[in-house]
Amino acid sequence: MSSHNIVRTIIFSGIVLYLAYSIGFFDIEKIYSGSKNLIVFSGDLFPPDFRVAGTLFYSLFETIQMALMGTVLGFIAAFPLGLLGARNISGRSISAFVRLVLGAIRTIPALLWAIIFAVAFGLGPLPGTLGLAIYSVGYLSKLYYEAFEAVDQEVIGAVRATGISRLKEIRFVIIPESMNHILSQLFFMFEYNVRSSAILGFVGAGGIGFYMMNYIQLFQYQRLTTAILLTLAVVLIIDFISARIRDKFLTQMPY
């Protein structure tokens, strides 16, 4: 028994060490110079240059706007798709097809969607918003069909036995029973989109990322620090507010 465990531990450590080696963790020269560069770079980041704060505020606003619109558009599409993807509501064949499509959408990250839309619609916040929206559809729909499927089968059975129509069943049973999930996942998606919209500017899709990219390319690291700090502040504020709203909306339901 214990010799078995020892063999297992040795094999596992061997794999980890090999992976670390092949990535380059044992290249002492490289690690040393890299660490030195990191310290120099960190020094360059400070002190932050707050003269650009005004310009950055505007683009931060754009970032939040993109995240909000992306989430709302995503929600509008994700809600019906979630219903269609739930096996207990739409049946096996429809849900399998919907899940396949949603899986395909999720495979492509938001950044890539933004690039695709930027090629099609040109630079600016529009491609960024669309990118976030379509990514949200892929993710939120999955979270929703899982929430809908988690509704107690006995409640559904009891209600179906009353001869209720399928649409009414959704309205009076499925939605109320999964309301907590619907809301909390919507807030989660919004928070997620605020974070990921900051980076969309890297590909010219609007928002604060555009400035971050520029500052990096022009070696204006002190301005970059300002952009990062402002983004951090906004993300924290939004997290705080959305946690408050969530607590207020969600009913605490002990059984």
Binding site: V155, A158, A161, V173, N180, M253, Y255
Partner: peptide, 19 residues
């Protein structure tokens, strides 16, 4: 008999708890 003329009370009652 039509389906809705059979009242069914399952073991866990099947009530919508949030309503």
């Amino acid at each position: 008999l039509e389906k809705h003329k059979v009242g069914y009370i399952p073991q866990q009652l099947g009530l919508v708890r949030s309503r």
